[in-house]
């Protein structure tokens, strides 16, 4: 299981993944920096200066954790979904299928690849944010934990999406129609306490709300929801998606005829 060969195979997949997104950094690492700068300028400075305070801090400070999280989510997801789908499309997935890499390590290799890009863009966006706002960290442990779990979750989600995808359109459906709306409605730009009670309850069904708030807690020390609750929820989601992805890969769904 943890043989030296398997670890070398894992390392190979990981290096291949990282090399891939560095090779196309203009498409992978640069856009989050630009988009997020725009968010900071437009929402943070221009509009934010009129909004005043939210949750006892400046609007800019309030939205920063959510914006970092947004880039972590999008990037960990899209790294795995594009990379795995293009491996299917170009059939280079066969390089792994003919070799003795255990399925678990294929899965981990892609997830670690996605997590690394999520973290890297998270760091880039944090650096961008620090040009606009003085960031202070309330709780490093939570910050770290939440960002790792979130990127794992979305990297795994990207993999499941790519396993089912049959054409290029299929890899943008979930990000466009599910991830983006859920992120915007996930309390990145507002506190759900501003919503009518009914919509507050509805919002609680949105998993991204928990991640954004838990992450915000790491920075600012307050949150719309309970942190422990959020961490448990995240772990449950990861375990279920991970098992699903493992099952699909073992069965060869979408990759073996």
């Amino acid at each position: 299981m943890f043989s030296k060969e398997s670890l070398i195979a894992l390392q190979s997949i990981f290096i291949k993944e990282v090399t891939r997104y560095f090779r196309i950094w203009v498409q992978t690492l640069l856009p989050p920096a630009i988009t997020m700068s725009l968010y900071f300028v437009i929402f943070g400075q221009l509009i934010g200066s009129r909004v005043g305070q939210m949750g006892g801090v400046s609007y800019m400070e309030y939205i920063t954790p959510g914006i970092i999280m947004m880039s972590v989510i999008t990037n960990s997801y899209s790294n795995v979904v594009s990379s795995f789908f293009s491996a299917k499309f170009q059939r280079s997935i066969e390089e792994m299928l003919v070799s003795p890499v255990p399925t678990l390590y294929i899965l981990l290799g892609y997830i670690f690849g996605g997590v690394s890009r999520g973290l890297l863009t998270g760091i880039i966006v944090t650096l961008v944010a620090s040009q606009f706002v003085d960031l202070e960290v309330h709780h490093w442990g939570i910050l770290f934990f939440v960002v790792i779990l979130t990127s794992m979750l979305f990297a795994t989600g990207g993999l499941v999406n790519a396993i089912f995808a049959k054409k290029f359109d299929d890899i943008s459906i979930v990000p466009t129609f599910i991830l983006t709306p859920l992120t915007y409605l996930g309390g990145v730009f507002y506190s759900i306490q501003l919503l009518p009670e009914f919509w507050q309850t509805v919002s609680l069904a949105n998993p991204i709300l928990y991640m954004v708030n838990a992450f915000r807690y790491g920075f600012l020390g307050f949150s719309d929801i309970d942190i422990v609750h959020a961490l448990i929820l995240l772990s449950v989601f990861i375990l279920s998606l991970f098992s699903l992805a493992y099952y699909l890969l073992t069965k060869g769904i979408g990759i073996r005829s």
Binding site: S3, I8, A9, S12, I13, K16, R23, Q90, R91, E95
Partner: peptide, 21 residues
Amino acid sequence: FNFSQFETCKQIVVTQAGYYG
């Protein structure tokens, strides 16, 4: 052909060896 079109020859063969440990 079933390799990634964007990887170099050396990357392709070295990665493959890695899959075999």
